[in-house]
């Protein structure tokens, strides 16, 4: 359904958004799963739930490229009309000065400026634009990977072309159409409650009831997309033997020899050899992607079946959202969401 024209052959016809002011912002998607045997981490949006919801809200495939904004404001100019959404941690979103809700579609008129500012209670926001952002991909993904040396970072003057089928529509009374799609928005802000299931090395560790499952942990400044390093009481090891390197999932909470806890993020090495005390649930991993230096984490021990049930409930919620968005967009004459 997209136009075949590329920006090089049709510079006039292709919509572009231009970055007017940026702090830390990049193009990303849901990452590159399936490459662990090549030693390539999944990476992609740190808060997968917010990124997925942002794309659903504009009727994009869930894994479509979008903008990830980290701990900073972003101002973007749209020469042509666009349907966008902003999700993630709280922020003030305005279009030519008029305030808009986050976690709802926003109709941006041609020539308008969209600003995302006053960011608080979490590190990351996502800006999705209906259509296909024209990005360079490595192994099928545009997500930054510092080890592969790939990634598109946005700064003032960056121009991002995109194909879109969006045709502006109007509200009969208000200047901008308003949506109420009722996304189940998670709670944002420190202290973050992180649900975890037992890790495979629990028998090698002691005093978990007084440490991991009880005490607050502080996210330290040397945390990044590879891992969050935490300050707090360390579980004690019952042995000092080395563990053979083995595969380790995102969300694993390792106990390092220095007694620090390391929570693995999406850029983590695919193997590790430190004991793993617990594993953040799939749902909690999105919250971990929002936690920044100075934030406090509290871990809550959950059963495996409870973690799976929560993950499935969230999947159902996203599927239900997709259905609502499809209904709404069809009513205003926009094609149903594609590819998801």
């Amino acid at each position: 359904m997209w136009s075949d024209s590329s920006p090089s052959t049709n510079p006039v016809g292709t919509p572009v958004f231009e970055v007017l002011a940026a702090g830390i912002a990049c193009l990303t998607d849901l990452g590159r799963p399936g490459l662990s045997r090549k030693g390539i981490a999944v990476n992609g949006a740190a808060d997968q739930f917010s990124a997925t919801a942002a794309n659903i809200l504009v009727g994009n495939p869930e894994s479509a490229p979008l903008v990830e904004i980290t701990a900073s404001a972003l101002t973007v100019g749209f020469a042509r009309a666009a349907l966008v959404s902003v999700t993630g941690a709280p922020a003030t979103v305005a279009c030519d000065g008029q305030l808009h809700r986050t976690w709802e579609p926003i109709c941006v008129p041609a020539g308008a400026t969209l600003s995302i500012s006053d960011v608080h209670n979490g590190l990351r926001r996502y800006l999705a634009v209906r259509g296909t952002l024209q990005v360079s991909r490595t192994h099928g993904s545009c997500a930054p990977d510092t080890l592969l040396g790939v990634g598109t970072w946005l700064r003032a003057g960056s121009r991002v072309p995109f194909d879109t089928d969006y045709v502006p529509f109007d509200h009969p009374i208000f200047r901008h159409p308003l949506f109420r799609l009722a996304v189940p928005v998670p709670r944002f802000g420190s202290p973050w409650t992180i649900s975890v299931t037992d890790g495979p090395d629990l028998p090698r560790l002691r005093r978990l009831e007084e440490s991991l499952f009880a005490a607050p942990y502080l996210v330290t400044p040397d945390s990044n997309h590879i891992g969050l390093r935490l300050r707090g009481p360390a579980p004690a090891r019952t042995d000092s033997g080395e563990i053979l390197s083995r595969g380790v999932p995102v969300g694993a909470i390792e106990v390092t020899p220095s007694g620090e806890l390391l929570v693995l993020q999406r850029g983590r090495p695919v193997t590790a050899g430190y004991p793993v005390a617990a594993v953040a649930t799939s749902v909690a991993q999105s919250a971990l992607g929002q936690a920044g230096p100075g934030d406090v984490l509290r871990f809550r021990r959950r059963s495996l079946s409870d973690a799976v049930a929560t993950c499935r409930a969230r999947r159902h919620a996203l599927d239900a959202l997709t259905t609502r968005v499809c209904t709404v967009l069809t009513r205003v004459g926009i094609h149903p969401p594609t590819g998801s």
């Binding site: 799963p33 399936g34 662990s36 045997r37 053979l244 390197s245 595969g247 193997t271």
Partner: peptide, 9 residues
């Protein structure tokens, strides 16, 4: 989704 084979795992 993904596989990591190492020494014995």
């Amino acid at each position: 989704r993904d596989l990591v084979a190492t020494y014995d795992s």
